[in-house]
Amino acid sequence: MLKKRIIPCLDVDNGRVVKGVNFIDLVDAGDPVEQAIIYNAEGADELCFLDITASSDNRDTLLEVVKKTAENCFIPLTVGGGVRSLDDISRLLHFGADKVSINTAAVDNIDLVAEAANKYGSSTIVIAVDAKQTAENQWKVFTHGGRKMTNIDVVNYCNEVAKLGAGEILLTSMDRDGTKSGFDNKLLKAVTSKVNIPVIASGGVGNLNHLLDGILEGEASALLAASIFHFGEYSIGEVKRYLADNNIPVRI
């Protein structure tokens, strides 16, 4: 049976992890490569780096991080943040990313989704969608790190990028992100019931039960979390054992 994937996400700024960390064996708490290696050893199913470096001049520091991680971790690595063009994708893949996530650039230029999927394969292209609820059972796409609202309906948009060749959708609830109140499972269900590609749930995880609900209620294929892992609240192993105890297929 296909397993539900647990994906720790690291926010990287200027080549350093920005969220607080609490690993016991970590020599350098801000080194994303070291953290990635630990997550890998703990049984993470994939890894995700989100580059939040403000200045594009400093983006190259991420490439070194990607390269070193790919040399040490033999699980899929998704990299996103500031990806604007086919050249950006090419560069990340060349340095060792397995998938590249595109957010604002895909909204600005929907053709990029098809071009990228045709050139690198659907399996390589993740479309990151920042969603915010605007009415009952209605969510709009936000861009530029959630600062700009568009008039695009999330479910329609997800369907469109799936048709254009996106391999999966990384769906973040802006309403829930950072709140630790659980995934927006209505949003998740609205997308997973209509879209035929895998959806990664993101935004809002505070405890183990939230993760379980993302699968049972949101019907997500994969779960992405940052702070619960970074702050050492739960290990990847604990998450997987909890899900397994609740009859969710996971890789242990």
Binding site: M1, L2, R5, G167, S193, P198, V199, R251
Partner: peptide, 13 residues
């Protein structure tokens, strides 16, 4: 069927 997303993506035995 719909509940089996395509691509077949992830860890399988």
């Amino acid at each position: 069927p719909q509940e089996y997303k395509i691509p077949h993506m992830g860890w399988n035995e």
